[in-house]
Design a protein around this nucleic acid. Structure first.
Lengths: 168, 168
DNA sequence: CTTGTTACTATGATTTTCATAGTAATATGG
DNA sequence: CCATATTACTATGAAAATCATAGTAACAAG
């Protein structure tokens, strides 16, 4: 035979499985990345993630239902919402940083260079990729860091935005 | 209009996007979880992840193609392979731990209890959920920890195995 | 009153996933 | 020797998700 019962939700005690029912999806993670990058508007999220509007709408709705995201009105008439991370959403930051570290180390050739460089505000020096600052050794929290895009990555994002805008 | 060009692979500089083309999938992460739990055989991985054989086969093949997993012959006649993590696969550990921490904290009610408890071998005390040991404050590496399943979670896994075995 | 902006929704084709079943190669017990 | 068990898959058809493309709604600005 082939499979056992267990309908998705699965009610397992495993926290990884639980987390994956919420964020186990490419688009979802890309949307979260944009929110952490402080891009709060639908259009920006869509342009930079490269998804179709349905994909982005669906992920944002699910993220809201799962409590990681809230919508805030930033303009009445016409009614417009901005998407923001909740506390639960913000708490996802370490996962994204770990994924970033793994991606930088194992999914790129060295000559490609970094996408971002973070400065650890506590010591004023580069934070590196780790869960602890490579300069001072302290665990890094999001609030203690400023990230700066490398020129190459910034250019890439600008180009993506231009291409998105040009296609309409 | 709706979408820009960019075919998936996308050749973006963003390490998160790069990582997600490899591990941005529920089944893939569940397979990796089992490999980290030292379950190396197809049957065990399938039973504990709850996927169909095709899902598991496809993920294992892709993980092998992406360099996170190698197959080792553990039995000739009949030829049988075991799946093991490569260095690249092992390096994914911090992501899984971060996901675990987030899942335990934000995807479970407190009364459900933990699935695993890790002991930090360097200090001999509980390691907790963080990237640094909650007892001694040192960053934890996989080699410096032993994990133990809670009785409830162990029972859950045993039951899953029994159900899997019974269904054939 | 035409064009632009932002955030979507609609549609039909394509692709993926799911549930169920079956196969291949061999070992084991009687 | 022969039936049953074990392990690791492959096959198939139905159901669901995703994709590219296009269009709509609600207003603002000129």
């Amino acid at each position: 035979m082939a499979k056992m019962k267990d309908n998705t939700a699965d009610q397992t005690l495993c926290p990884v499985a639980r987390a994956e029912t919420v964020v186990g999806d490419r688009w979802t993670v890309l949307v979260l990345r944009e929110l952490f990058a402080r891009n709060h508007r639908f259009e920006e999220i869509q342009a930079q993630s490269g998804g179709t509007p349905q994909m982005i709408t669906a992920r944002l709705k699910k993220l809201e239902a799962d409590g990681l995201v809230t919508r805030r009105v930033y303009n009445k008439r016409p009614l417009r919402h901005a998407y923001h991370l909740t506390e639960k959403g913000e708490a996802f930051f370490p996962v994204l940083m770990a994924l970033r570290a793994w991606g930088e180390t194992w999914c790129k050739s060295p000559r490609e260079g970094r996408a971002m460089n973070y400065t650890h505000l506590v010591c004023g020096k580069p934070a590196g990729l780790g869960p602890v600052c490579e300069s001072c050794g302290e665990p890094v929290r999001r609030a203690d860091m400023v990230g700066e895009r490398t020129p190459k990555y910034q250019k890439e994002r600008d180009a993506r935005w231009d291409a998105f805008k040009a296609s309409r």
